[in-house]
Simulated scan of single mutants.
Amino acid sequence: MRIRTLALAAASGAALLAAVTLTPAAHADPARGAAPAAADLKEGSVSAADLLAKVTSCSQISNGKYRTDEETSATIPVCGKNGAVFWKADMDIDCDGEITAACNEDTDPWFQNGTAFTTSAGKPLNAEKLPYVVVPSTSSIWNYADAGIKGGGVVAVIYNNNVEYAVVGDTGPNKIIGEASYATAKALGIDPDPETGGAESGVTYILFKNSKVSPIESHSAAVTAGDALARQFIQNN
C-alpha cells in the first residue's frame, strides 16, 4: 500500500454486467512480463478514440479534487458515467509488491513489499509483470468502494491513442491521483522507471463499476473482461 507522496521525476445503465468475474483461458499466462509489440497495444476490439469520445466532459462525483503530485494544486476530479468512473491525470510509477529485478529497494526509493490487494494465493502483486492501477485511499474527497470500485476491478488506461487493460491493484495517498504499475507504464510506452519515469499528463483512467477479475493476477482475464466492458460502456454512454 502506498503511503508516500510522490513527485514525478525531475523536474445505471444496465449495471455493467453487475459483477464481471472471469477466469483466464487454460493456455493463458497469469501475467505478462515483456512489453508487447506496438501492434498489440490496442487490446481487444475497442479503440482509444472510441473510449475517449465518451469522456470529453466531466460530471464530478468526488467531493473535491486531487493533486497529481505533492507539490501541485488540486485540479483533478473523479467523474461519473453510466457504468464507470474516470479521471484524467499523469502517471506515477508504482513498483510495490513482489520483489523483482525491476521492482525492489534498490530500484525504487519508496519501495514497499506489499500491495493493498493480493493474488489468489494471498501474495503481493507483481508490479513488473501485472498491469494494475492505484486508487486514492478513502478520504473525505472520495470513497472508491462507495462508487462500486473494488480490488481486481477492470480499468481501461489510455495514453497516446493506445489502450491497456489493467486491474485495481493498490491504494495510494488520499489526496493524490494518477498512478499505475511498472507493467502498465511499460505496455503503454511510458518510461516505467519508478524513480525517474512516468508521464506528466495525458493519461485517462476509466474504471468499470462492479467489475472484478478472478484471479486478479490474470492479465488475460482483465483483457477479456475489459473488452466486453468497454463495448458496453460505449453502448450506454
Score class of each variant (00 low, 15 high):
120 S>Y: 04
115 T>M: 05
206 I>A: 07
203 V>F: 04
155 V>A: 07
128 E>Q: 12
201 S>A: 13
187 A>K: 12
98 E>W: 13
160 N>G: 05
114 G>H: 10
171 T>N: 13
117 F>H: 13
161 N>D: 14
145 A>I: 10
208 F>K: 10
112 Q>A: 14
172 G>I: 14
122 G>V: 06
142 W>M: 09
205 Y>S: 09
181 S>I: 02
170 D>Y: 02
142 W>R: 04
136 P>S: 11
129 K>S: 14
187 A>S: 09
160 N>Y: 02
198 G>I: 11
100 T>M: 03
188 L>H: 01
111 F>Y: 15
189 G>Q: 00
112 Q>K: 14
199 A>T: 03
175 K>N: 12
206 I>V: 11
96 D>Q: 08
134 V>P: 01
205 Y>V: 00
152 G>Q: 13
208 F>R: 01
200 E>N: 11
118 T>Y: 08
167 V>R: 03
153 G>I: 10
131 P>Q: 09
184 T>H: 00
134 V>R: 01
128 E>M: 07
192 P>I: 00
209 K>H: 06
199 A>W: 00
151 G>E: 06
113 N>M: 12
190 I>V: 01
137 S>H: 03
198 G>W: 08
156 A>Y: 03
163 V>D: 06
212 K>F: 10
157 V>Q: 01
121 A>R: 10
199 A>E: 04
141 I>F: 01
120 S>M: 05
140 S>A: 15
137 S>N: 10
208 F>P: 02
214 S>F: 00
155 V>M: 00
196 T>G: 12
118 T>A: 15
148 G>R: 13
96 D>L: 09
180 A>H: 00
122 G>P: 08
190 I>H: 00
210 N>Y: 13
105 E>C: 07
149 I>E: 01
110 W>H: 15
145 A>K: 15
166 A>M: 08
158 I>M: 02
105 E>W: 12
158 I>F: 08
124 P>T: 15
152 G>A: 02
112 Q>R: 15
99 I>A: 15
172 G>M: 09
173 P>G: 08
157 V>I: 10
174 N>R: 06
112 Q>C: 09
129 K>C: 15
152 G>P: 09
214 S>G: 02
152 G>K: 07
128 E>H: 06
186 K>E: 08
